[in-house]
Design a protein around this nucleic acid. Structure first.
Lengths: 254, 254
DNA sequence: CGCAAAGTTGATTAGGATCAAACTCAGTGG
DNA sequence: CCACTGAGTTTGATCCTAATCAACTTTGCG
């Protein structure tokens, strides 16, 4: 277990301003516009914080939970970023997903009550612990909330489908373009630019996520910088023409 | 639209015996042991058929719904098999999933109310139409059912994760071995042998599902027959040593 | 019987994996 | 303050898997 530490090279994506007082945790959360819990709190005035069982800071490189850990609460990212690391059937480790503010984590563990992957922070981050028991209880009495929660789960399912689609895509170029675009989309959802952002994961993580190797990612980036209207220097990404990237994905349809 | 037709080469996996009378649809269903609806009916004696809005036959090669169709009901497979065909971002078509008796279809469409893929029958099949409205209503009043439904969704999420893991697996051999084993598992769940079964999909479907080509699948099968304790002739599969297949997946763990 | 879909086989090629080595840079400790 | 250290990244050379193109066989169905 790592202990909490200050890391200078990465600032949290967004720190809740300290000026608000007497407001619920959700109301000062940077993720309130995209978070399940936040959506709900805007809709119903009563104590939404009963869902929030607590909050937890996770230092960069530290893990919030591991494969096989008991699921006691779901987690919603308040700020920062995470990666999930799955053990594939041949025992290798693969980055399965990246999570940002507002993302809900642990839905796949509901089935058997245990987590299926390890969750590691890419930067200093904070999560809300959401009591699953409280969620199911609230679903029974608040149809609106039930609808939303099911939509969130359904969306997670769709996202996984999409990831499969990206992986099954033959060309590495296409996979990477897809990754850049959807990462931009995620930042946009949070109110940032979708064409200018920082990658918080390593090249190795990207390679693992895309089903390829570090070396290939490195060459890929060099080639993208040379041939396409993008600039990727270190972890800083500039997409000068998102339409171009999107269109060179859509080549043929058999 | 294709019309209903008799197809001689493929028999339905299992036809409910006609001897039962005065029983609910679920009680004579071949999928009752694995179906959400069936599970529920065993648990609570009251009218479970309110969930079942109807039944629908789908002829081989016919489609039950297409990408963009409105989601009105979820579907549970009674007998037969289906494949889902997704349009990936470059416009190509990919087989995303195979469904068998008891599988619940359409969960990913809850989020936006529209289906994300086309669903086509691999053989003459039959599905139950499950009213989503009735499901959500029942969830609110029956905690046990709520728990089960959420578990089913969570499981679907996990399955998608697994599919991603298979796709990200480098070697084609491993991907294929994985496919054979998990197909066997699915048959086993339904009470059949997990080492002796028929594939109801074409080589092309398999290739698409595994992210490769028809030719590669063909060569793959030839090589498997020669090198491994399996026999795959036409669509008939015999796995003489499942442990062997499983173990050659687990080679190294870095 | 004949055509279309499904499946097999062969030859060639290209895209990445792999192995190897050097370089960059942030965090650590003398 | 600077050198050491190790993780992260880049670059080069080689090899191999699977895509591609093409021809052919088999199967199934009207």
């Amino acid at each position: 277990m790592q202990t909490m530490q200050i890391v200078r090279d990465t600032k949290p994506l967004s720190v809740p301003p300290a000026t608000h007082q007497g407001l619920s945790a959700c109301e000062i959360c940077s993720a309130q516009n995209v978070c399940l819990s936040g959506l709900f709190s805007k809709m119903e005035a009563d104590g939404n914080d009963s869902l929030v069982a607590g909050r937890r800071r996770v230092a960069r490189h530290a893990s919030l939970f591991r494969e096989g850990d008991l699921l006691d609460t779901l987690f919603a990212v308040r700020f920062g970023q995470f990666k999930s690391i799955r053990r594939d059937s041949s025992g290798g480790l693969r980055v399965a997903q990246f999570y940002m503010s507002g993302d809900l984590i642990g839905l796949d563990a509901i089935a058997n009550g245990r987590h299926n992957f390890r969750l590691t922070a890419l930067e200093n981050s904070e999560v809300c612990e959401l009591s699953y028991a409280a969620i199911t209880k609230k679903m029974a009495t608040h149809p609106q909330f039930q609808r939303q929660f099911l939509q969130v789960m359904s969306n997670a399912l769709k996202d996984e489908h999409d990831h499969s689609a990206v992986l099954s895509r033959s060309s590495l170029d296409e996979r990477f373009a897809c990754f850049l675009l959807s990462t931009g989309d995620k930042y946009e959802r949070l109110g940032y630019s979708n064409k200018s952002f920082r990658l918080s994961m390593t090249r190795g993580d990207i390679g693992s996520y895309l089903g390829t190797t570090v070396e290939s990612v490195s060459r890929l980036i060099a080639r993208f910088n040379a041939q396409y209207p993008v600039s990727i220097v270190g972890r800083t990404v500039q997409l000068y023409d998102r339409k171009f990237l999107a269109s060179f994905l859509a080549r043929e349809q058999p």
